[in-house]
Amino acid sequence: MIQRLLFVLLLAGLAGWPPQVRSQSVLADLAEHLVAIHAGFDGTNILVFGSIPEAADLAIAVRGPAKVTTMHRKGSVGGVWVNTATMDFPRAPSFYALAASGPLDEIANLHERERLRLGLDYLDLRPSGRASENLLAEWRAGLVRAKERAGLYIKEVAPVEILGGRLFRSSIALPSNVPTGSYLIDVYVFRNGLVAEAQSLPLAVSKVGLEAEIFAMAHKQSALYGGLAIVVALLAGWIAHLLFRQR
C-alpha cells in the first residue's frame, strides 16, 4: 500500500506539477499488472490510477479476453425443463466491468458508447449462427443477464475518485471466479460527451503455483493426470484403512 501511494505521488510529481507538462494528456497505470490466482484466491481489486486533463470526465472499461460463450435457452418438454436451443457468441468478453467519474449517460453520448462498446448494452455480441433481429436481441439480453448472475458482467459502475481535478484513482473488483487470460483496461477521457483521449493497459490474469500446474496437467496431459488421480485416491484409501484399523 505504501508502495502504491509512493507511486501515485511520484506520478503526481511527474504529471501533475508543473501543470503545463503533458497537461492535455491522460496518463494511467495499474498498481499490479498481474492478478495471480492461487489456492486461497477469493477475488481481488485492481487499482487504476493516473492523471487526466483538467475538467474532463473519465470512464474505465475492464474487458476479459473474448471467449466463445455458449448460451442455452430452456424450454419445457413434457413438464421437464431442458435446453431446447443453443447459440454461440464467439466475441463475447469473458468479463466486463466499468468505472466512471459520473453517470455514464451524462459523460458519454450514445453514439460514442456504441462505437466504443462501452456498457453492457453495447458489447460485441454477434452470434456464430443466424437469427432474426428480434430473437437475437432476446438472446443477447439473456446472455448479459446470465453473465450478471455469474458475477462476470458487472452492472454497477464503480466510482472514480478525482483528486484536485487532475489525479484519479479507481478500484475495480474482480470476483473469485474471474476468467483467466489477457485483459485490457481502457481508460477513456471524455469532453462534452466525446472521447478526447484513450489509453489501453494490459492486465494478465493467470493461475499460479500448484493450481496452475494441476489445471495445465488436467488439460494437456489428461491421461497422466487421470492415472495420478487414481494413484492419489488409492493411497488415500489405504491411509484411511490404516487409520481405521488402529482405532
Partner: peptide, 15 residues
C-alpha cells in the same frame, strides 16, 4: 428442480 420453471430461460452453457 426439473419441473420448476428456471429463474431465467437463458442460461450459460458450462464452459
Amino acid at each position: 428442480d426439473l419441473f420448476t420453471p428456471p429463474v431465467d430461460v437463458y442460461v450459460l452453457g458450462s464452459g
